[in-house]
Amino acid sequence: MTHIPFTGQLINMCASLLLLIAFAMLSQRRVLSLVHLFAMQGLILAFSTTVVAYSSHQSHLYFSAGLTLVLKGIILPVILHKLVRRLDILWDVETLFNIPTIMLVGLALVVFAFNLAAPISHMAGTITRSTLGVAMASVLLSFLMMITRSKAVPQVVGFLAMENGLFFAATSATYGMPMVVELGIALDVLIAMFILGIFFFQIRVAFDSLDLKHMEQLKDD
């Protein structure tokens, strides 16, 4: 334990906080709290990227940290917040069935991700290699969250959280992706957010609800 430098400990701490937030999202019923959790996830991600940049002297990671902070810590949560307000679902509470079971499945996913990442972590030489398991776990947990939700907004939050997990995996395994790729993904996420925002209104106009279960009526008989 003592051979891990302090920056490494900080990164591990951020990793476990991200995992904590992933579980909190999984069990959160309120839409607004979900958006707040997502903003917190973005802030922690930006902080951990800064720490990685500082400890590995990779200057381009500072840019990704700044990009993460602005995009995922501020812009996307603000857009989501505005959408939730415009859609008038500020105090919407989703009925989630059987949270303990979902959490247990989540725990199994974490064990699975940790085992999956173990051999890769052994090969990687980065300071952050042990956090790869956590990153994969948060990707899988966000995926699980998307599966268990039926409303549109929580699903989109799950999608964005999954992107956060992927970003964290990239920083922890290989010190981030090339700048071009990163900028491209950031733009993609932003555009996707806008399009999904328009979709929300279209869905509500068509079905009078944001519950995606209604889409099952669309099939041809």
Partner: peptide, 25 residues
């Protein structure tokens, strides 16, 4: 309450898991 306590137990187990992943030498 069982849901609440189940969550507490899960977090405790997760703590143990992260210890083995992140801290084990």
């Amino acid at each position: 309450v069982p849901e609440f306590m189940g969550t507490a137990f899960l977090f405790a187990v997760l703590g143990l898991l992260t210890h083995f992943l992140l801290e084990a030498a």
